[in-house]
Design a protein around this nucleic acid. Structure first.
Length: 623
RNA sequence: GACCUCGUAGCUCAGCUGGAUAGAGCAACUGCCUUCUAAGCAGUAGGUCAUAGGUUCGAAUCCUAUCGGGGUCGCCA
């Protein structure tokens, strides 16, 4: 049993004994603040009305009774309404004896799908994807460590206008270039042609756009002209800068969409949908280049998937659900034949679920895919690791599935995370401020190599060992840096200052681990149990921290957030480092104490590697 | 315009199911390597927890308003 649960039970009994039945009162116990003496603190204010005496008096009464249980409590002190309790050495040793860094069974029997990564196939992965991948992978490991049966899924967006852009640019300007001939990664090559397309489009339309802002533009299509004139009127009436730039943006899109390049692109998409052999061939070739590139990035990043879904297979799904929703009056049709759902009873708007021409929108596909996932695996929970810009989308999706009476709707969850910002603001591909995933990984590798060489502690390690060290060290730094921040919050990444290797970092935790391993190489810990041993305060601290592990593990799963785990790892590493500095392990003359410390070190290192593993970080024995 | 979200030390972040004197790391400054790995440890300095009200014995934490950043809102995924 968890130590806090045990204590809460003891305290509840005592309260009952002292004051009779106290209904509905939760005993909340917290860790004593470091400035006070004690292990745990009970706030007694809530009990004053039952004790009918002052807070100090009440605390004293409770403390007096509790400390009669010598095998649990050793002493207490009272400051104002706070009862600080000291735990007996015997109890700490009990916990020490049975402690093991192991999984919990909180989610046993649950089948959970975690969808993450979900890239488009027209560009290489960037820093934003890295946060997504690290969160998704880590959440999967955390759910597994709580006993769940986890399916890691990746829904690849392999179709649509963005891929056609790369394809068209490659067709026209590529001269048959391949990843081999150009000697670059496939995803980067395809990304290169996406950029070529965008540049050519700017070249071809910038003049026309400028003219269009001033009213000097026409199209062959009369309905387009009508929309254009309408926008011009709105532009002349607009006053706020925000409004003006928004309308200008719409005009820009209008002109661009009418350009030869975009028209050809649309044509290509139509041909793709019609199953044109040549287009399909090109499409699958270029996608395969991208997949090769992604594979390598995923591998370097240390993430993996059990199941791939491809949008080219799923984009038509959901239409039957739309029909079903119409039949059951969950959806309704407007004059133009478009299908909608009214969510105003839930405080939201009406939402389009199918266009007037019968084609799908994003949410149509997502409805279909949700159904597919359930049919494929009969999952209890379906988790989507997707950025918080889609909070609204998922709110709507889940509501729709509930309204449609899907039994699995309750198990759907959007693990929403914040964007990664640069000091200059948001990453923008047009402005070239995107931090490429492969570049970043390479830079981290170089940095970890440089830092290691600076320290010069790697005598006797051969090149392949060093390579593993640099890789793991760089990944530890990067992963910890990203996962340490509360997933829901946006975070800042400054490419100018490299990620730290000192202080609250992944390498710090690794270092603590390597130090322990160095000791254990010299002498192994023998398994034995302890019932009576004089403990140093740093030793108690380490045991105390170890005993919190299972709670931390559960919370990380409940909150869909690995950051608590990171904080815990730092706590544990710090408390062990304090011990390491205060006490000698190998040179301790008392053999019982010495072995106890060796075991404590062993359990600490096991916990460090178990918890870091859940972040997707692999340890090294030496560094 | 509406809705969501964030605002804590110079910087990056914890703390947020209400509890004591608000914590780390980085950067700055002091100490500690002939003793188990100094990627470490100990210490100094740095705060009107955006602002103003409210609820409470008690508010960084809950509520309301204001200011500021970010995001979303009928056909991009």
């Amino acid at each position: 049993m968890n130590i806090e649960t045990l204590l809460v039970e003891e305290i509840s009994q005592t309260l009952h004994h002292l004051y009779g039945e106290i209904i509905g009162l939760k005993v909340s116990l917290e860790k004593t603040k470091p400035t006070f003496n004690g292990d745990f603190t009970l706030v007694v204010f809530p009990f004053v009305r039952y004790s009918k005496s002052s807070p100090e008096e009440t605390a004293k009464q409770i403390g007096e009774v509790l400390c009669k249980k010598e095998e649990i409590f050793s002493s207490y002190n009272v400051i104002k309404g706070f009862l600080n309790l000291n735990i007996s050495t015997t109890l700490w040793l009990n916990y020490f004896n049975q402690f093991e860094a192991t999984s919990t069974d909180t989610l046993k029997g649950q089948k959970i799908m975690i969808e993450y990564s979900s890239p488009n196939t027209n560009k290489p992965l960037h820093l934003g994807h890295i946060r997504n991948n690290l969160l998704g992978y880590s959440l999967s490991q955390i759910m597994k460590a709580n006993g769940a049966d986890v399916i890691m899924a990746n829904l690849i967006n392999d179709r649509g206008i963005h891929i056609c852009k790369s394809m068209l640019a490659w067709q026209r300007f590529g001269n048959g270039e391949t990843p081999e001939s150009a000697a670059i990664k496939g995803d980067h090559l395809v990304g290169k042609y996406y950029v070529v397309f965008e540049n050519k489009l700017v070249e071809a339309t910038s003049e026309a756009i400028e003219n269009a802002y001033h009213g000097n533009w026409t199209s062959d299509d009369n309905t387009i002209n009508e929309r254009y004139r309408d926008l011009l009127t709105r532009l002349s009436e607009a006053e706020e800068d925000k409004q003006i730039s928004k309308i200008k943006g719409l005009i820009k899109d209008l002109v661009r969409n009418q350009s030869e390049l975009m028209q050809s692109c649309q044509e290509m998409l139509r041909k793709w949908e019609a199953g044109d052999e040549e287009i399909l061939q090109l499409w699958s070739t270029m996608n395969s280049w991208v997949y090769d590139g992604f594979d390598s990035t995923y591998k370097n990043l240390g993430v993996s998937f059990d199941k791939f879904y491809y949008e080219s297979n799923t984009y038509t799904l959901g239409k039957d659900i739309v029909q079903e929703g119409l039949a059951s009056d969950v959806f309704f049709i407007k004059e133009d034949n478009s299908v909608w759902i009214d969510l105003s009873d839930k405080g939201l708007d009406e939402k389009l679920v199918q266009r007037g021409d019968g084609t799908s929108v994003y949410i149509t596909q997502d409805m279909g895919t949700a159904e597919l996932k359930y049919k494929d695996f009969h999952i209890d929970r379906s988790i989507y690791v997707v950025g918080n810009e889609q909070d609204y989308h998922f709110k709507v999706l889940f509501l729709i599935m509930k309204k449609l009476g899907r039994p699995y709707a309750e198990g759907m969850y959007h693990a929403s995370y914040g964007m990664v910002d640069l000091p200059s603001g948001k990453m923008k591909s047009r402005e070239g401020t995107v931090v490429d995933a492969d570049d970043l990984l390479q830079e981290m590798y170089n940095t970890s190599k440089a830092k290691t060489e600076e320290l010069g502690k790697t005598q006797g390690m051969d090149d392949s060992e060093l390579d593993i060290l640099y890789k793991r060290l760089s990944l530890a730094a990067l992963k910890f840096f990203i996962l340490k921040v509360d997933a829901k919050k946006r975070m800042l990444f400054n490419p100018e200052d490299s990620i730290d290797f000192q202080g609250d970092t992944g390498p710090f935790a690794m270092y603590t681990y390597a130090r322990i391993k160095s000791i254990l190489r010299q002498q192994q810990a023998e398994n034995s149990s302890y019932s009576d041993l004089e403990l140093h305060s740093t030793e108690v601290d380490v045991i105390k921290t170890l005993s919190e592990y299972s709670t931390v593990l559960k919370n990380a799963a409940n909150e869909y957030n690995p950051s608590g785990l990171c904080q815990y790892i730092l706590d544990l590493a710090k408390s062990f480092n304090r011990l390491y500095n205060e006490l000698s392990i190998l040179k301790e003359p008392d053999l019982q104490k010495k072995n106890f410390r060796l075991q404590l070190a062993k359990k600490t290192s096991d916990t460090l590697s178990h918890s870091m593993g859940l972040l997707g970080i692999e340890m090294v024995e030496r560094m």
